Computed example of a mutant assay.
Amino acid sequence: MENRIVVGGVLIHHGRVLAARRSAPAEVAGRWEFPGGKAEPGETQQQALERELFEELGVRARAVGRLPGEWPIRAGLVLRIWSAELLEGEPEPLEDHSEVRWLGPDELSAVDWLEHDREVLPEVARLLAAG
């Protein structure tokens, strides 16, 4: 059976990246992540990310490029993280999150990231530095 893809979005705007604090499920509540969700059948990863960012945060964004690596979340689910640019809207925690925060390059370690999101922070720092 093929793994189902979960997309996470490194949403970058004005040299900062968006972090979202999970409100559910209980085992990850209070930890921070790059928001996203599961790709639906027939959807590209880019389409899934853009849809999830709209559903979870109320923003329009464009998927730009996939970051290196992938992370198994649980049996049958694999996380892939993409960079994205904010096109319109101000992110709000609509679903699955209790708070969102824009972080600059020197603030990336200021929140308690989920492990797989923490692993991409060096790449995120590189993207922020590249402007």
Rank of each mutant, 00 (worst) to 15 (best):
E119W: 13
S83R: 14
G58C: 08
P35V: 02
E43L: 04
K38E: 12
P122I: 06
R126P: 01
R16A: 12
R31A: 13
L94Y: 10
L94K: 15
Q45N: 14
R60N: 09
E99L: 04
W71H: 15
A61P: 06
E2P: 11
G131I: 01
A19W: 08
A20V: 01
G8N: 06
E99G: 06
V111R: 07
R21Y: 05
E52I: 00
G8Y: 02
A110I: 07
W82P: 01
W102Q: 07
G37V: 09
T44N: 11
V64S: 09
R126Y: 07
E70K: 11
F54T: 01
L87Y: 01
E85Q: 13
R22D: 04
L108R: 07
D117P: 02
V10P: 02
G15H: 06
P72H: 05
W32R: 02
P93V: 02
P91E: 12
L53P: 00
V100H: 05
P41W: 08
V100E: 04
D96I: 01
E40A: 15
S83Y: 06
S23A: 13
L53D: 03
E2T: 08
L87E: 12
V10F: 04
A19R: 06
D117L: 00
A84Y: 03
G9A: 10
E85P: 01
P105G: 15
W82E: 02
D112Y: 04
P91V: 10
A130R: 13
A63W: 01
H116W: 08
A19I: 01
W32E: 09
V64A: 13
E85D: 11
R4P: 00
L11D: 06
V17E: 07
G76A: 03
A84L: 05
V7T: 14
R16E: 14
E90H: 12
W113C: 02
R21S: 05
A110Y: 09
G76S: 09
E50A: 08
A29H: 08
G69D: 12
V10A: 14
P91F: 07
P68F: 08
W82R: 02
E123Y: 12
V10G: 05
A39V: 04
V59A: 06
R62K: 15
L121E: 03
A61H: 03
V111A: 08
A75K: 11
D117W: 06
E55Y: 06
L57C: 08
G15R: 12
E92W: 01
A84V: 02
W32A: 00
E119V: 05
L57T: 04
P72G: 00
L94Q: 14
E55I: 00
L49Q: 03
E99H: 13
L77N: 08
R16Y: 02
E2N: 12
